[in-house]
Each structure stands twice: as C-alpha cells, then as structure tokens.
Design a protein around this nucleic acid. Structure first.
Lengths: 346, 346
DNA sequence: ATTGTTTGTGCAAACGTTTTTACAATTTCC
DNA sequence: GGAAATTGTAAAAACGTTTGCACAAACAAT
C-alpha cells in the first residue's frame, strides 16, 4: 500500500487538491504551504501514481517503438541497438519512457500497435525501418496518431520522418573513389523494395555522371543486407572479364561478406579493389582491413526521431508536422579505400 | 473521445459491470449476453483503456528493462540487441509490454528505476549486465520488487537470475583446444570486477588441471570487452619467448582485436595460433577466419529472463524465487581452431 | 466604507475500469 | 410445493489523480 496524495494531504492538514497543485507548481499556491507539503512528501516517500495521472490527463509520457517484424538479418546489425539507444536517451531526458514492441507477423504487429494506441499506453510512435506499404504506417497515419518514421516512405508524405540524405551520401562515397582515381566503380545494392536502396543507387549514378563516367547498369548488383549477398556480389564482379577497381556497397555487413570472399580468393583490399560502404557500424573499424564507410549518425537518427516525436506530441506544431528531418552524414576514410587503383586503361 | 465500457453497455442495454465481465470471461455470464456484447464491442470499435485497468488492478502488464549506464563498449556488441529481442518476444507473447530505460549516471539510473517502480509503471524489472554492488539491484531487492538479473551477482543471492554456466563453458572451450593437441594455452580475460570474467578463468583452470597441464598465471591477461584489449593481449603473448599455441578469449569482440593484430604481424590463424572465444555473436562467423566460439544463447537468455520474471510476478512462486536459471551453451567450432598446434616439445 | 480584484484553498466531479454486494429469476432438491 | 441452491445481472464503491467552480480572506481602488 503506497503513499497517496490523500495521505500526504491528511498529514499536511490540507486538501488533496492542494497537494496536487503543489506537485504541478500551480501559481496560486503559497510558498509556505508548498514548502510544508513538499517536506511531508519527502518524509513520507510519496511518489505519484502514473496510472492515475495518465487516466485523467489522457497522456502517458511514453513513446512506442515498433521493432520491425523479426527479419533476422536486421538484428545482426548493431544498427538497431544504436538507434534505440539514441531514442531512449533523448526520451528519458525529456521525461518520456519508451515502450518496445514487435510482432512475429504483420498482423501481430498491427495488433500490438493498436493495443498500445487504443489502450492509451503511448502518446506517440516511432517506426524503425518501415517497408513500402507498411500496414502499421497506414494504421497510424490513418488515426493521425503522432508518428515518426525512421527512414523515408514514398507514400506517406504526411508522416513525420527522420532520415539520411541517402542520395547525397551515396554520391559522396562515389566521389571519394573517383577522386582517388577510380574510373570503374561497381555498386552493390540492397533489396529494391527499400527506398534506401533506390536512393543510394541514384546518388551513385549522379556522381558518375558528374564525373563524366559511363553508367553501366550491369555493374549494379542487387542483394540483401546479408553477408552472403556480399559474397555473391564479389564472385560476380571478380569473374567479369573487365572488373571494377572499386565498389560502393550499401551496408557494412554486406561489405564484410565481400572482404571475406576477396580474402579467400587471395585478393588484397585496397590494392586489388577498393571498397566504401554505408552505416559505419562499430565493427567497420575492426574488420580486416578497416572499412571506409559513410557514417550516417545512427544514434543521432534515433535521438532526432525521439525529439521530433515529442515535439509533435506537445503540439509544437509550427507547421512542422509532415516534415522530414535530415541527419547529416560523413565519410569515414579507412584502409579499404586508401590507395589509388592499379594502372589500367579504361 | 474513444469508446468506453459505458458506451458499449448503453448500446447493449446492459450495465457496465456486465460488459466488464464479458471482457474477463466471467463464468456467470450468459452466452446470449456475451455474444451480443461482443458484437457491439466489435461494431463500435471498443478497446479497453489500459490506464484505467491498471489503476484498479494495480498491475500494468509491463516489464522494465534497465539498460546499463552507457558504457559505450557494450553497445558495440550485438549482444544487447539479441538479449532485448529475446525479452521483448517472450514478453509480448505473454501479453506484457516492455519499457526500456537507461541513465547517464548511476544516480540517474536509480532515479529512473524508482520512478518506474514507485510510479506503478512496471510490474517487474530485468537488469542487464549488473555490476558488483549495483545500486539498482540493491534498490530493487530491498523493495522486494520482482527482479531478474541477467548474469550472476555474488551479493544478491535472493534475486532471481538467468545466467550461463560460465565455469563449464570456459572449461569446454579449453578442453576443445586440449583435444586438438594444444598444451600451451593462454587466457584473455575481461575486467576482474565482473563475475563472468572470474568464472571463465575458473573454468579454464579447471580444464587445464583435469588434463594435468600446468597452471601459469602469467598466461592470463586481463582487459576489457574491447577490441583494443585483444590487440594488446596479442602483443603480449606474441612477444613471449615461449608462446602459447592457443588462446581462450573472453569475448568475440576481443578476439576480433586479436585476429586483426595477428593479421597485421603476418601470423596465420589457426596455423600459428588457435583461438576460441565466447558469445558467438553473429559476426563471429563473418570474421577472417571465422571464429570458434561458445554460443551462450543470448536470445534464449533474454527469453528465459522474461519468462522467469513473469512467473515471479504471477506469483507462481513454488519456491522458485531466488532461483538461478542456467541457459545451456554450446561450442561452435569454426576455422580459428580447426587445426592442431605446430609441432614443438612443451 | 463599499466595491472590486487578487490570492489561497477546499469540494466534488471526472477519468474508465474492476469488484463486492445485493437481488431477482430460475432451477434443483426432498 | 416450498426451501435451498444456482444463475444472471445491476448498483455502487473504489483505484489515485486533476481541475473547474466556489468561496473566504486579504488587499486595492474608488
């Protein structure tokens, strides 16, 4: 049986409403009473009951984070941990808690979310890694429930989102290789349903064009965010009669697969082929050789998402609803792209 | 304004209590009414308000997960993501939500937890990676709040915990190397404040003793769960006049540092030195060479923790309070330990 | 002095549930 | 055929807050 506002009130010789007002720093409360009540609260070890509070205020001070349905591959990535850490840190800092949820199937996901939303358990939601046509996004945007998407969704322009400028990021990666002297640059992409894949391909193309280099669609290989995909892409490229001297790779994990394959076949990185990839997960600097990678500020993405969501909840609208936040990226150059390409005529 | 139990009651021509009873499958409700009420609930889109429910039932159907204070190194590890995934999956499956929290400092951590606990926001807590003398554990065990520790704490024998049998796991790793023919085996440990480090050292020693091999304390190197520690340990061992032919390493990340160092110095693994480590994070099979590692079932640890906690909350006591759950481990042999040691006389 | 305003506090309703108690209607039993 | 047990439902209190309204006291303005 914990201490309630009534207990405090009784002991302080005031009414419950007064205690409540002390708690919320109501202006019309005398300094004297305030002091006394606070003292007694301290003494009795009073802690407000969040449930009661939520019930009347219709607000829970918590955010829901929807984990993507267990696509196992995603969890190989430290990506999510970083993201979540960013979200939780900022949320806690603003006095919000974070409720995690996930579903085994799309249906379960929607169920879980609707339980949270309709049950009044959360004030807003952050969606990680939304797919195209994500039913959860549909659901939330339909209800006009405060929502932030991490990543960009083509069809939900009316939903807040936090994202990397992937086009620019890919262009940066590609330009870096061009500057090193590379003229034959391949691209290892992710699933073509994901906007991130498409954006990065665009950026890659853009940089090639700027430099007046030919666009060769046969040098764009599609795969998944898995090490195996990298391995396969590597085989493909290395068996070509005319090989690229450098690769831009859509994700660090995929690069790991490539590195491993190249090592097995006895190729040297960057001597035989240079590699630049994306995300700069912690392990990128631990690989052999350490990987050049675009740091997209994963923690920062999470942090920003949390911040944007809380603003939206507070109604600091300022027409920033339906806004897209871009988190800056930067290229981290490591050994995998430190040298110029072998001398050949293109 | 959402649909309440009263709205449903009015429309169905029954009392709110009846609706509530339908919801909770009260035995004394007629099939007819039940059907009718359910129909109307569906029709009106009724969803129970969790806050109101919690207020009266004094139970929230959510678990708190306390992330360790941002020890950056921990987040390099996919460890936590796996753990959390296990926790969330099992919790959701049992109808529980998971609230995440973390603190920038120990004080903030305790504050955050006490807010959750006293505020009645969570029914139980899971602590990841508790330190010795963890103030959060003290706080929770003091309040007799349902708590599960992942990992073992020496001083809180009265707290539920889920853990690996690290002594046995380390012994297994060491025995594996002995079976391959190794006679000179070193150990790279973690911080000596952590029980996990100490346990693994014990297991290592035990296996050496069983095999009648000499215990050499100068072949036990202490470090942190960082790649740099591995690098340093590697330097130490490789500069020894008499070198071990194999190493048991306390964490995969540390092994990555070792592998990288060996590669730089031109040593081959496993030809020159064999390595077995712990945790078998997803990247262990992606390293060069792939790493032999003890799989401690991280996901399973999280899953079990969640399960144990929910049981404790439900009061399925059966004297299983203050119990220690052991999650089985198994050795995954990969290339880093596939060959016999170079021929030498010990 | 009288009126008007400000300041500090209490009362009571409300938030959306669960649950205890009560009671009528029906069934069961001897 | 009447008492006892069972079944189905309702009324109302409770959970711990917040907040609009009321009102007394103190102060300010005329």
């Amino acid at each position: 049986m914990s201490v309630t506002i009534k207990d405090v009130a009784k002991r302080a010789g005031v009414s419950p409403s007064t205690v409540s007002r002390v708690l919320s720093n109501h202006p019309r409360i005398s300094h004297a009473t305030s002091e006394k009540v606070r003292e007694i609260m301290e003494e009795m070890g009073y802690h407000p009951n969040m449930m009661a509070k939520s019930l009347v205020s219709k607000t829970t001070k918590s955010l829901g984070v929807i984990l993507p349905k267990p696509a196992e591959e995603l969890f190989l990535n430290t990506f999510f941990m970083e993201l979540i850490r960013g979200i939780v840190t900022q949320a806690n800092r603003s006095g919000y808690d974070v409720v995690l949820t996930s579903g085994a199937s799309e249906k379960e996901e929607v169920d879980a979310v609707s339980r949270l939303v309709f049950g009044g358990r959360i004030d807003g939601a952050i969606l990680l890694y939304s797919r195209q046509n994500d039913p959860v996004v549909d659901f939330l945007s339909d209800k006009e429930f405060p929502t932030v998407l991490i990543g960009r969704s083509e069809q939900h322009a009316n939903v807040l989102s936090v994202d990397t400028n992937n086009i620019e990021a890919a262009a940066d990666a590609t330009r870096h290789l061009i500057q090193l002297g590379h003229r034959r640059i391949g691209f290892v992409s992710g699933p073509s349903e994901l906007v991130v894949s498409l954006d990065r391909i665009s950026g890659y193309r853009q940089a090639l064009q700027e430099a007046g280099l030919p666009l060769r669609d046969d040098w764009i290989v599609e795969g998944e965010f898995l090490q195996e995909s990298g391995y396969r892409a590597m085989s493909f490229f290395m068996n070509l009669p005319e090989r690229p001297t450098a690769l831009v790779v859509v994700d660090d994990i995929v690069s790991f697969g490539i590195l491993r394959g190249l090592h097995e076949l006895g190729y040297k990185v960057p001597d035989d082929i240079s590699i630049v990839s994306f995300n700069n997960i912690a392990l990128a600097e631990l690989s052999t050789p350490p990987l050049s990678s675009i740091d997209i500020g994963i923690y920062h993405l999470g942090y920003t998402a949390s911040q944007a969501l809380i603003q939206a909840i507070r109604g600091d609208d300022h027409a920033l609803l339906s806004q897209r936040h871009i988190v800056p990226h930067r290229l981290i150059v490591r050994e995998s792209s430190m040298f110029s390409p072998p001398h050949t005529e293109s």
